[in-house]
């Protein structure tokens, strides 16, 4: 048994002392500078306090009735936009997904599909919506195109990854029977990726509805446009009603898709 006291301190995350303190100092410095560049406009904020109160009161007593016609029209646009864009997006994402899977697509097709997906994913929906509104005019058609485009980027990438992760053994087995490319697709690939594709598609319904509320802000139709108008008029009780409806529908979508996914998988 030892009688001398031995010291112990926990091993630090970064072993090099200089580097460790350098990293800590750098982080503190960044936070300090970043904070200092935020402008706090106190007079503007005190003006806003009353509005914050109104908004909060609006949530407690939302006004569904006085703007109901606008809300109804906006909801209808959002919902139809969600359905059409999801369906079209899923249908188009299948060829793009297959084309972007390295193990079954020829190289030029692979390169094109991958590039398309990369562009679709890195641009925010709102930015795409701005352009499409310029090109196609105001209204839900531009929103539909935006969401369909974004859906392709989302689903095709995940589908391609799924196909690439497919167990190659059944693939070889089906090929070995002398099956053609389409038969390989139908018998070896599809059964392996179908359940997850259905799950992801349902998840995308949620996302598309949420995004449909956003694209309206830049003029692409839907409930977002109604919300934007309500905010512009400082009708916080109507705005609160719209937000509560959005939350309710998203919640319903999540439950429904969870239910369907449990049935399918």
């Amino acid at each position: 048994m030892s009688s001398i006291s031995r010291r112990w301190t926990p091993p630090p995350l970064i072993a090099n002392r200089a580097l460790r303190y350098g990293v800590y100092a750098g982080l503190c410095l960044y936070l300090l500078v970043a904070f200092s560049t935020i402008e706090f406009n106190w007079t503007r904020m005190s003006e806003g306090a009353a509005r914050a109160g109104n908004l909060f009161a609006g949530f407690l007593r939302p006004d569904f009735t006085s703007r109901w016609d606008d809300i109804e029209a906006g909801l209808l646009e959002s919902l139809t936009m969600t359905v059409t864009s999801t369906i079209v997006g899923i249908i188009l994402s299948i060829p793009f997904g297959i084309g972007a899977a390295r193990n079954i697509a020829p190289v030029p097709v692979y390169a094109f599909c991958r590039a398309f997906i990369a562009v679709a994913r890195s641009l925010q929906e709102v930015i795409i919506a701005i352009f499409l509104v310029v090109l196609f005019g105001f209204g839900p058609f531009a929103g539909f195109l935006t969401l369909a485009f974004a859906t392709i980027g989302f689903l095709a990438k995940l589908l391609a990854e799924d196909i690439e992760d497919c167990d190659p053994a059944p693939l070889e087995a089906i090929r070995a029977t002398g099956a053609g490319w389409w038969q390989v697709l139908a018998y070896a690939i599809l059964p392996q990726v179908a359940p997850r594709l259905i799950g992801l598609s349902l998840y995308r319904v949620d996302i598309n509805f949420r995004e449909s509320a956003v694209v309206g802000i830049v003029g692409a139709g839907g409930i977002g446009a109604t919300l934007n108008t309500a905010m512009d008029r400082y009708e916080f009780d109507s705005a609160a009603a719209i937000l509560l409806i959005i939350i309710g529908i998203v919640l319903a979508c999540e439950y429904a898709s969870g239910f369907i996914r449990a049935k399918v998988q």
Partner: peptide, 14 residues
């Protein structure tokens, strides 16, 4: 903060 009394650290070593 892992600042245990030295007596506890001694016990742990034992």
């Amino acid at each position: 903060l892992r600042r245990f009394p030295q007596a506890d650290i001694d016990r742990a070593f034992v």
